[in-house]
Design a protein around this nucleic acid. Structure first.
Lengths: 156, 156
DNA sequence: ATGACTGCAAACCTTTTGCATAGCG
DNA sequence: CGCTATGCAAAAGGTTTGCAGTCAT
């Protein structure tokens, strides 16, 4: 099943008279192995750490190519980095983002989606996509904070 | 009731040993009169167009001050601009964003909020804030498109 | 052989910062 | 007066682009 991403990319490349290169294959492999929601720089660093020689600009260009062919999508959470997420053959989901350890948890909730459609209908609006992000603290960070500053329940 | 924003700002200023300046009052007035979800540059342009002399850096610094005292919040929709929104004395709401005319419609839905809390609970996550953005076409753009290209119902 | 791809460095664009001057408290 | 604010221009930080050389087809 890992063939699918590669196939999609190759079809796009052929259709647009582009070329399959070593670099593009390298980035695709690294992208699929990397954590979801990587930045271009993280991916680039990871590749270099594995001894793969590639320029940062090429990583950016390749990730943007992935977005054009529907393999990936760009996300922007709080910080000023653009993150890329593999979305091909992946069902839609939303995100819980820990503002302390930056862990990202994915979830899906059809009831929420239904209510969103209802809101849209009420405003005669046609939804093409949406973004639901819940920011806060994960269990681990919550417990860690309780341990470290037990007498500051409400902050200063 | 328009006094409240000014009062909040003044309290913050006094508490932090800052100073009330002409520039800060100008920006506050312009900010309250401006469209919600302005960028710093839009606000700056608008002020200059009214003959108010102020530097862009000061506008940025002042909007950031507003965020610190709870008067405003930063938002980042699709583009790479930071938008500032007056949030003092405004109940929480989410956004419908027309990707064609860039109109922004605000809405609130307590059922969705409740479901969000449920999701968080299930993941033992504590939500501090969230962001729900529905992207698509508003009625006007939808109708306009239907009129202009009636024989392209599914696109190419 | 043509035309796309790569790496590098420079350019870009929005936002922030350093510095000298102006002005609130 | 001391200390904060301002304006300008320069810096910063992430992303894109121009160019000369390389490589896929």
């Amino acid at each position: 099943m890992t063939e699918n991403e590669s196939t999609l990319l190759q079809e796009h490349i052929t259709r647009h008279h582009l070329k399959i290169t070593n670099e593009r294959e390298m980035v695709l492999r690294a992208f699929m192995e990397a954590e979801r929601h990587v930045t271009a720089e993280e991916l680039h660093d990871g590749m270099k750490r594995k001894g793969l020689a590639i320029g940062l600009a090429t990583v950016y260009r390749t990730l943007n190519l992935f977005c054009q062919c529907g393999l990936a999508e760009r996300r922007q959470f709080g910080d000023h980095h653009t993150r890329y997420e593999l979305t091909y053959n992946v069902t839609h989901h939303d995100h819980l983002i820990c503002t302390q350890c930056h862990q990202i948890i994915e979830f899906e909730n059809l009831d929420i989606e239904r209510l969103q459609e209802e809101v849209a209908r009420r405003h005669q609006f046609t939804i093409y996509h949406h973004k639901l992000e819940l920011y806060g603290l994960c269990v681990a960070c919550n417990q860690k904070n309780a341990r470290e500053k037990p007498d500051e329940p409400m902050g200063g």
